[in-house]
Nucleic acid binder design. Structure first.
Length: 364
DNA sequence: GAATCGTGGTT
DNA sequence: TAACCAAGATT
């Protein structure tokens, strides 16, 4: 794509792109959300908290992140604290948040920051981009919000707002270059961080996916999509592929411990789905039910009359539940975990859900 | 460039 | 209720 194409959408945008940021910032100064990671007017942003929040908020809602952010920063308040943490503790602390590569990259980045950057984040977008877990969005957002750099920050909110503001017809994801170019034309030289956060607040509260509140929108008079009458028609998107089903088996293997029953947990491989997380043993996840393939022990497995279904991003997993007691040696590497304190194991939601179902059936 | 990678809330 | 979606990154 040449330069002419990349700026073409802006030609159909607001009559005066430079009028957008002042209108939005005026709105932001009156309606900004008060969030635990957000510096208040006059305060200096804490780069650690800005970074942590940006990573936690990737594909994750504010409501979910808020309590997790507070707990995390109480446990690890600084880069140095996090860099010194044990990986198992970090992964367990992330349990339930999903996209677990974020936690691995968070710890890896903290250690790079401690070892190579004097315990502080670099302040330019380009330097940030080289750290683990920093993609185009996060590097731009941290540079702008934590360090006041002018950076073009484009998340899903900005994509939606800008697609409407400029009435961009091209469907996502092909529209990304045009949307970024259009965002560049309205990004101010000062207060770029506030501008980015204002766009996100606007997308969350006003320019919503469905039924946008255009009557309350500070940008309505600049919005080509609104002028066309159907702003919620933008952005257009390619249809998504449907989610296939896969089937697996959960093995609930117990033994008598000194302080009550214990269950076998394993650690999943570092790469791939739920990588590096503690888990209940399972066999393969396949289109057909695998039965007792890859059982962690030779024992008298009993099938429970229940099934757990869990939706991942690109497939739905249906899990059969079987229980057994360990007598001899087990064929899988793992750790025996007291059933009574299973909540502290840091299991991903799919396994927490299965454990809850199994314990409920055994108790009942 | 297309797949992969979680989960919980909303409609 | 099933579909859609969220402060995306990595390979």
């Amino acid at each position: 794509m040449d330069a002419k194409d990349s700026i073409a959408p802006a030609a159909d945008g607001p009559a005066d792109p430079h009028a957008v940021a002042p209108a939005l910032l005026h709105w932001y100064d009156r309606h900004r959300r008060d969030l635990p990671w957000r510096a208040r007017p006059g305060e200096t942003p804490d780069p650690y908290r800005v970074w942590l929040s940006e990573v936690m908020l990737q594909q994750t809602t504010v409501a979910t992140v808020r309590p997790r952010f507070i707990a995390w920063t109480q446990r690890w308040p600084t880069f140095a604290d996090l860099a010194a943490a044990d990986e198992a503790d970090v992964m367990a602390a992330w349990a339930g948040l999903g996209y677990y590569a974020r936690a691995r990259n968070l710890l890896a980045a903290a250690r790079v920051i401690a070892a190579e950057h004097g315990g502080e984040l670099p302040c330019t977008e380009e330097a940030l981009r080289r750290l683990p877990g920093f993609g185009a969005y996060t590097a731009a957002a941290v540079a702008a919000i934590a360090f006041g750099e002018r950076a073009v920050v484009v998340d899903a909110n900005v994509e939606r707002v800008v697609a409407r503001l400029f009435a961009i017809q091209v469907p996502l994801p092909n529209a990304r270059p045009a949307i970024r170019a259009a965002t560049d034309t309205i990004t101010p030289d000062t207060r770029a961080g506030d501008f980015a956060q204002a766009m996100m607040d606007l997308g969350q509260a006003i320019c919503t996916v469905r039924r946008p509140k255009c009557l309350l929108c500070p940008l309505a008079s600049h919005c080509v999509g609104h002028a066309h009458g159907e702003p919620d028609r933008f952005p257009t998107k390619k249809p998504k592929a449907d989610r296939p089903h896969r089937h697996g088996t959960i093995f609930w293997l117990t033994r008598a411990g000194d302080d009550g029953p214990e269950v076998l947990l394993v650690r999943r491989p570092d790469r791939g789905l739920l990588g590096g997380m503690r888990a209940l043993p399972t066999g393969p996840w396949e289109p057909a039910r695998p039965g007792l393939v890859d059982a962690p022990a030779e024992t008298d497995w009993r099938a429970l009359n229940a099934q757990v279904s869990h939706g991942f991003t690109h497939f739905t997993l249906d899990l059969a539940l079987v229980t057994g007691e360990a007598h001899g040696p087990i064929s899988a590497a793992g750790e025996w975990w007291p059933v009574a304190s299973l909540d502290e194991a840091g299991l991903p939601t799919v396994f927490a859900k299965a454990a809850r179902a199994i314990r409920g059936m055994e108790a009942g």
